[in-house]
Design a protein around this nucleic acid. Sequence first.
DNA 1: AGCAATTTAGTACTTTAGTATGAGCCATCC
DNA 2: GGATGGCTCATACTAAAGTACTAAATTGCT
Lengths: 136, 136
Amino acid sequence: MRKTIFIFGLLILALLLLFRLSKYALISGDFQIEIVISVVAVIFFVIGSFINKRTFQKEIRKHKTIDHQKIKDLGLSKREYQVLQEVAMGLSNQEIANKLFVSESTIKTHVSSLLVKLNAKRRTQAIQVAKDINII
Amino acid sequence: MRKTIFIFGLLILALLLLFRLSKYALISGDFQIEIVISVVAVIFFVIGSFINKRTFQKEIRKHKTIDHQKIKDLGLSKREYQVLQEVAMGLSNQEIANKLFVSESTIKTHVSSLLVKLNAKRRTQAIQVAKDINII
DNA sequence: AGCAATTTAGTACTTTAGTATGAGCCATCC
DNA sequence: GGATGGCTCATACTAAAGTACTAAATTGCT
């Protein structure tokens, strides 16, 4: 919000500055009205593009951001979440075990509690649920 | 490409029109230079925003659109692709069989060939691959 | 220090997934 | 009309996944 106000303040300032400059330029006869208008057009075209770009990038990020609050709400532990990520990458229990330097039994335990917490019957369903609620 | 040329043509036309109008307005003394510049600024701000919006929406769509060409390239049949979608939804072979009114054996066959064509060892990996290459 | 939660690991078992192979049916394309 | 590819289904098997416990070591917190 503060940023928006700041930006619009700058815009108004720039506009006022342009008024002065254009008036001076026209009176002094150094420039033609066409050039002044062209410059103004280009400047505001760029400003419009820039602001819009910012807005869109934010929205994209919002959609793709992982919901850390949701992870806490579900009661997923750090390790469980780690395992969930590996599961979503398509690894087998054994592969995850090797990657995390633990036994397959451990991974099975984690996956089982994951399925309960995510209310899923299979790991594939868990992946689907996790993606739905933006935690991966 | 034609669209781009068309749009830029319109832009130049609008600019030329503004030149005429602004000159007339200034000479006739009906308007002040501030108003003319403000109008130009607003117009090009809007144009800049609009064009940028279009560009971004296209890029987003490109990322989220399923790549039908890729599906053909991989040699996925209609039924196989159907099964792939259900697998990605987290269903078991039996559930998919019920949904498509075929036996579990049939689904197993489809899944097996899916794994070969997607170069995956497990269904979870197949899901990952499929999402990577934008076919689901 | 002591409690609660987490992480680890095991056994024993059931269920689901995946492989390999063969075979029948059907539409389509030379 | 035979070859091809896609869809179906079955059997028999192996491998992986998942469940249901138990339990020890670790960590975090008050």
